[in-house]
């Protein structure tokens, strides 16, 4: 286990160490102080424990690494993540998992607005609630919300799947409730298990695209 104290070490030297580490290496980062761009651009299957709150873009563009943040995360958590796992024990600010292509993002607490915006294949599991405009233009992947979802969920959504256990304040344009079939329950069960959450999948509803806005049609102009 390599200890890195951000009181005495810069974010630059932290990222150089993490980006150069071999798969299987273990790191523990302390005194994060809300710093930005912590643990970004990792490319190997290392384990990084971050003790404390982090600022913008923590775990950005992660590939393969397993990153756990014991605290809260600022905007753009795990943005454009490609693979690996990012787990936050607290809450996350806006745009968590934005444009992420793969991997698993777990937020035990709440996530703010625009969670999963333009997501492109990632799986995101939220223990609490999510804010407005989440999964806006979500292309593919899964967003699981164990609490409630804010306004305009899934606005202009493409092929992503949304599972919500609680209430949805409102659905966005072209987002509709869809049937929860066996394959969806199976997928949800697996995601909850991987995230360490235990809920009955029968309590969830599924939402996705009505696919009415996939090609511009002047008769749909009032939808925009």
């Amino acid at each position: 286990m390599t200890e890195i104290n951000l009181d005495t070490s810069s974010v630059r030297s932290l990222n150089v160490k993490l980006q150069g580490a071999a798969s299987g290496d273990n790191f523990n980062v302390s005194n994060t102080g809300g710093k930005h761009a912590v643990s970004v651009g990792l490319t190997t299957a290392i384990n990084v424990g971050i003790n404390g709150h982090v600022g913008y873009y923590c775990a950005g563009m992660n590939q393969q690494a397993n990153i756990t943040i014991k605290g809260n995360a600022g905007p753009g958590l795990a943005e454009n993540m490609m693979s690996g796992k990012v787990h936050v024990t607290g809450n996350a600010s806006q745009y968590a998992g934005a444009t992420a292509h793969g991997g698993l993002l777990v937020i035990e607490g709440d996530a703010s607005s625009r969670c999963g915006i333009s997501m492109k294949g990632v799986s995101i599991v939220i223990g609490g609630n999510i804010g407005h405009m989440s999964a806006f233009m979500a292309q593919s992947g899964c967003l699981v919300v164990c609490g409630n979802a804010g306004d305009a969920l899934g606005d202009s959504i493409y092929e992503a799947r949304l599972y919500v256990r609680g209430k949805v304040a409102s659905l966005g344009t072209d987002c509709i409730e869809k049937e929860m079939r066996a394959e969806h329950k199976e997928q949800l069960e697996e995601l909850l298990k991987q995230s360490g959450m235990s809920h009955n999948v029968d309590e969830f509803r599924r939402y996705g695209s009505a696919r009415k806005l996939y090609n511009f049609d002047i008769d749909q102009v009032d939808a925009y």
Partner: peptide, 11 residues
């Protein structure tokens, strides 16, 4: 901050 992140990712 975004520019800082991109610089960190690309050394």
């Amino acid at each position: 901050i975004k520019i800082q992140e991109l610089r960190e990712i690309t050394n």
